[in-house]
Simulated assay, not measured.
Amino acid sequence: MTDEHPHHPRLAPLPEDGWDPSARELLAPIPRDADGRLPNVFTTLVRHPGLFRHFLPFGTHLLRDGRLADRTRELLILRTARNARAPYEWGRHVPLARAAGLTDEEIRRVGAGPDAQGWTPADARLLRAADELHRDARLSAATWSALAADHDEAQLIEITMLVGQYHMVAFFLNSAGTPLEPGFATDTLPAPTRTGDDDA
């Protein structure tokens, strides 16, 4: 798998002076960054307003109203961003991961995967789940059973759907060449390791 990303956006974020009434309606509920601008992921996706209208409620539910703990959610998203080699997704979620209680050392360790020293068994199970879904499109019986010990049925469903959602978003971001906003650019995506089946 190549690590190449477009040097320039293939689909540029739609500038605010180019928003039509439909785009303004769709983008109105989205919180702006500290500089007053909307994240590029949304101003690019809004180029397909019909899809955007259906995409946003699902993604918002997973991010804000889901059944998983914030820390669990962000750990799964960071590992997915790393597996999909999605620098925009990684950069935007590092601050959310910190807010959810992940330390900078833990965030760096996400790149090393579930077998790195320092993870709790619960964290290692989540990272392994993200890796299995990325590699095999399913959870192994052992990982499902381990996760079921501390997650209910709804949370098990959400783990698989969350990882799938952020793969889908990574596919779009990587292919469109969506640029990461400057304020988030200092948090770099961990380089892939090629030890064993981690990056199959």
Results as ranks from 00 to 15, higher is better:
97 A>W: 00
87 P>A: 07
148 A>P: 02
75 L>W: 04
176 A>I: 03
17 D>R: 12
12 A>Y: 09
155 Q>Y: 07
127 L>K: 00
135 R>N: 09
21 P>Q: 07
147 L>E: 00
27 L>W: 04
97 A>T: 03
11 L>K: 10
200 A>M: 12
1 M>D: 12
150 D>F: 13
81 A>M: 05
13 P>F: 04
171 F>N: 13
179 P>H: 05
94 V>F: 05
170 A>P: 10
19 W>D: 08
149 A>G: 10
91 G>C: 06
85 R>V: 11
140 S>N: 01
137 A>D: 10
81 A>V: 03
4 E>W: 08
120 T>V: 10
45 L>M: 14
166 Y>A: 07
119 W>Q: 01
98 R>S: 09
101 G>L: 07
168 M>E: 13
191 A>D: 11
151 H>C: 06
94 V>P: 00
133 L>A: 03
160 T>C: 13
46 V>L: 07
138 R>K: 10
70 D>R: 14
26 L>V: 04
89 E>I: 05
12 A>V: 12
193 T>L: 15
162 L>P: 02
125 R>Q: 12
46 V>Q: 03
196 G>D: 07
118 G>L: 04
36 G>P: 09
191 A>T: 10
179 P>C: 04
62 L>D: 07
181 E>A: 10
191 A>L: 12
119 W>K: 02
23 A>R: 11
52 F>P: 04
49 P>S: 00
17 D>I: 03
